[in-house]
Design a protein around this nucleic acid. Structure first.
Length: 615
DNA sequence: CGACGCTACTCCGCATTGCAACG
DNA sequence: CCGTTGCAATGCGGAGTAGCGTC
């Protein structure tokens, strides 16, 4: 440990070696994963080669990109910092009286005040963490000794007023401000990678604030301090000018020229200094597009291996070796394949307590005879995964045995972790890891659904088919969203509308009968006398009323159906865009009906796909 | 470990909707 | 009276953000 050489000097030779390596030849990578046990797949590959805009540069195979040069020249302008804190002159009350604070102390107070109507204010952990950090900034001997004695309402009200002012601004004023911001930011928005102008993803440094973790995060409420230029490392081409530091008198932490990585800048996360925040190119850049394509190609490759993989793990369900690892791997792989679970890395105590496949606890699964398993756990982002599934009997038995003799809080797969699991998967297929199954399952489901369910009809009907398939994928991946605050009132309003429309319909039917006999219509619910109408006119009205009811009822079911399902996440991250593009081409659906502007940009690489493309 | 992918949330512009006034 | 227009309320979805996972 202590005998570490001066590792800083080691990096230079490494970097220059890579430079050399990269410039010596255009293609040093071997196609190590080209042994595809399937002629069809090979044909597809050659077909794409002709058209793909990456065909020249896509020699890098998935999973073999480590140490590879990602770019040759890189020019960019660094990052932009959030504006400095402007004192608003509003004081908090301490024991009922306004109190003077330093700008720094006041900034933290403001962060707290503006979170008033979030539910974090109800969480003791949040209050405790905030108070600890704030007290540190106030100093131990500060007059303020208790959070409870502080009243933040003046700042809160000031903040509300500011928000109101902003709302009241005319569209012209808003536009002018936006324009100005754009002008300031313009130069940061772009990077020039190998001579090509590409969009930068996140060139704005994260502003200071109070940490808002997802779920029961142990660090919620902690102060996320302001990031300064001295925190930031810049990565840029050797020959490119070093971006000028935007804050006078300060300077960057370090300038690097590492062409094996794609980040333009990074800083340490102030909440967890062991972690990093990176500035990357935008999703629409070809660098990201290329790796996106590689991701889907890897998932497609799994299609050719999946049969054997399934056969292998099915065989291992009953494996009763001395070493239980094999059997656990088999069951874990089965779950990842069948349920699209995440791998489940171990987590720190300092993070929210969530689990994935390898970290499932005994209490997260319940065996319901004869062969049902109930899953209930908090996954990524503390989103609850609740699902009862029928499993093959050997799996049911195995899970029961993994549970046996363990406490509720112990690991179900005690002999397993993600690195063991992934190491095993890599033996089955080059580059295979747990997450590939999610991509594979999502995309293959879409592909199949679209092929099976699309019928003749108008564009709107086909779009509904797509959305249904998309929804199915979102459910598989457990992509959720919180029910909107107004959902209940929306539903209520819809039911009211349906009710009145039905009432109207009823009256119309009576009126129709009466009109046929030449009698005048009855008085309406409001007591008003209605006009005499011909039976034909009434029938017309009946038809339109019926249509209205139908529409409202449709609206309501889809709204209720999708209230907790988020379709966007899978569209952006899991569904091979070529499936969608090909489907649109085959069925003459304008691609814009499915992909918005940013998706079209992100998936530019997929647009020239063959209409007969299958995932 | 460091680098990258994934994910839900917020905010805001804009289209849609419902309703009243109007011709 | 009925269809059109104008207007405000509503809500949808795109863009951006920052935190969460994977490998």
């Amino acid at each position: 440990m202590s005998t570490k050489p001066n590792h800083l000097s080691e990096k230079k030779p490494l970097a220059s070696k890579l430079q050399q390596n990269g410039s010596s030849t255009s293609n040093t990578n071997k196609m190590k994963t080209s042994v595809v046990p399937n002629k069809k797949a090979n044909m597809k590959n050659t077909k794409q080669m002709k058209k793909s805009k990456f065909s020249k540069s896509t020699k890098v195979q998935p999973g073999s990109t480590d140490g590879q040069r990602k770019w040759t020249t890189l020019v960019h302008s660094g990052v932009i910092f959030p504006p400095p804190y402007q004192p608003h002159g509003v004081k908090i009350l301490y024991k009922g009286k306004p109190i003077d604070l330093t700008p720094e102390q006041e900034e933290v107070a403001t962060m707290y005040a503006v979170m008033k109507d979030t539910d974090y204010m109800q969480k003791p952990k949040f209050l405790e963490n905030f108070w600890n950090d704030w007290r540190r900034i106030l100093g131990r001997n500060h007059v303020i000794q208790k959070l409870d004695d502080c009243d933040f309402t003046p700042i809160y009200e000031w903040h509300q007023q500011e928000k109101e002012k902003k709302k009241q601004m005319s569209t012209e004023e808003k536009k002018a401000i936006k324009e100005q911001k754009m002008q300031q930011e313009e130069k940061y928005m772009w990077a020039i990678v190998d001579g090509v102008k590409e969009k930068v993803g996140n060139f704005r440094v994260e502003p200071p604030g109070l940490f808002r973790g997802r779920g029961e995060h142990p660090k919620m409420g902690k102060l996320k301090r302001r990031i300064r230029p001295r925190d930031i490392t810049i990565n840029i081409g050797k020959d490119a000018p070093v971006p000028e530091c935007p804050i006078a008198g300060e300077s960057w932490k370090e300038i690097k020229h590492d062409s094996t990585v794609t980040w333009l800048a990074f800083w340490n996360d102030p909440i967890n200094p062991k972690e990093f925040k990176y500035v990357f190119l935008a999703a629409s850049s070809s660098l990201k597009g290329q790796s996106d394509k590689e991701k889907y190609e890897k998932a497609r490759m799994l299609k050719d291996y999946i049969h054997n993989i399934r056969a292998a793990y099915t065989k291992d369900f009953n494996n009763k070796d001395k070493d239980p690892t094999k059997r656990q791997i088999a069951v874990a792989t089965y779950l990842i394949d069948k349920l699209a679970l995440r791998a489940g890395n171990e987590k720190d105590e300092e993070e929210a307590d969530t689990v994935g496949c390898c970290t499932l606890k005994v209490s997260n699964v319940e065996c319901i005879p004869p062969n049902m398993i109930k899953f209930d756990f908090l996954g990524k982002d503390s989103i609850r995964y609740e699902n009862t599934v029928e499993v093959e009997l050997p799996v049911f038995k195995a899970i029961g045995q993994f549970q046996a003799g363990k406490g509720e809080n112990e690991l179900l797969f005690n002999a397993l972790d993600t690195s063991k699991l992934n190491a095993h998967l890599k033996e089955l297929m080059p580059g295979l890891t747990a997450k590939v199954f999610r991509t594979y399952n999502a995309s293959i489901t879409l592909d199949q659904q679209l092929y099976e369910e699309t019928e003749e009809g108008d564009v709107a009907e086909k779009v509904v088919v797509y959305q249904k398939a998309n929804k199915q994928v979102a459910i598989i991946c457990n992509h959720q969203r919180t029910v909107s605050k107004t959902h209940d009132s929306q539903i209520l309003r819809l039911t009211e509308r349906i009710e009145t429309a039905k009432q109207e319909l009823k009256e119309l039917k009576i009126d129709l009968e009466r009109a046929k006999k030449g009698k005048p219509p009855l008085k309406g619910a409001d007591g008003k006398q209605k006009r005499n109408l011909s039976p034909e006119a009434i029938e017309k009205k009946i038809a339109s009323a019926k249509q209205k009811i139908e529409k409202y009822e449709m609206d309501m079911t889809t709204k209720e159906d999708l209230k907790t399902v988020a379709l966007g996440t899978s569209k952006i991250n899991y569904l091979d865009p070529r499936i969608t593009v090909a489907w649109c081409k085959r069925h003459e659906v304008p691609i814009e009906k499915i992909f918005n502007k940013s998706l079209l940009a992100k998936f530019a690489w997929a647009m020239d796909v063959d209409p007969e493309f299958r995932f």
